[in-house]
Amino acid sequence: MEYLIHLAILIAIYVILSLSLNLVVGYTGLLSVTHAAFYGIGVYATAILATKLGVSFFVSILIGVIVSSIIALAVGMILNRFKDDYYALGSFGFNVIIFSIFLNWQDLTRGPLGIPGIPRPNIFSINFSENLIFLMLVVLFAVLVYFISCFVVDSSFGRVLKGIREDEKALQVFGYNTHHYKLSIFVIGGAIAAVAGSLFAAYISFIDPSTFTLNESIFILAIIILGGLANLRGSILGAIFLVLIPEILRFVGMPNEIAAQMRQVIYGIILMLLMLYRPQGLIGEYKL
């Protein structure tokens, strides 16, 4: 039972991450491979604020979101100058830079040693150290993010985003400042990813930089491509699939070290097969 709750929590966290990335990649057509960086900013915000300053969890979420938004704003302004594959490459670069900040700014992040002892949230005398109750909190956030995403894509703002994806020039002709739209959605995506990070930090209680490498960004990208670009339910489906599939390996008795690598083999193969045979993913509405 504990194990199932653990998986459910992970799935909910990845649902938050993939929904937010889908807004950027699926709806707006910006191939961003830097999502793990914003995820990591949320994680470190909560970890540092909670362990060093004893800030409450919910305040730390807010601060994580603000920091992540500011950085996303700066990164987005630079990335907006690029298109398609150069965009992907530039976003790659930011993931590496932000990862090296996590790794090397040792006064703040303790570098490779990581930060242990991150407390679970505590509010209105509800004890979130019980995993089941924490799961409810994470699911609550995931549902909230789902509805925010629905609201974003169904609004007129969302329709402009899809327009940018299909034909940016045409929208510019109609007088839309596409630059601002692209920047806004990138910031929204980064902010939501930071929420997932805060939840992850509080859940796992020990964090180190190795979680926020490029591989994690590729993993989140694999989730949304598998589920389907520009389809919110697809992201949920993708997160469930890609979190659960590697768990099967554990049941066939594979040692942990190898299972972790097999996980990468599996999602790498899934990425290749999808590109070859079904670039729109399971239920996607947009092909890269």
Binding site: V265, G268, I270, L271
Partner: peptide, 30 residues
């Protein structure tokens, strides 16, 4: 080659190569 024959976009090729990279690196680690 199959992707190029289908005139896949650069981004599709880039994502496919990311997949290939992940697979080969993990196999080496195993």
């Amino acid at each position: 080659l199959p992707l190029r024959k289908r005139k896949a976009s650069n981004m599709v090729l880039l994502v496919a190569s990311l997949g290939a990279f992940t697979v080969i690196q993990a196999i080496i680690a195993i």
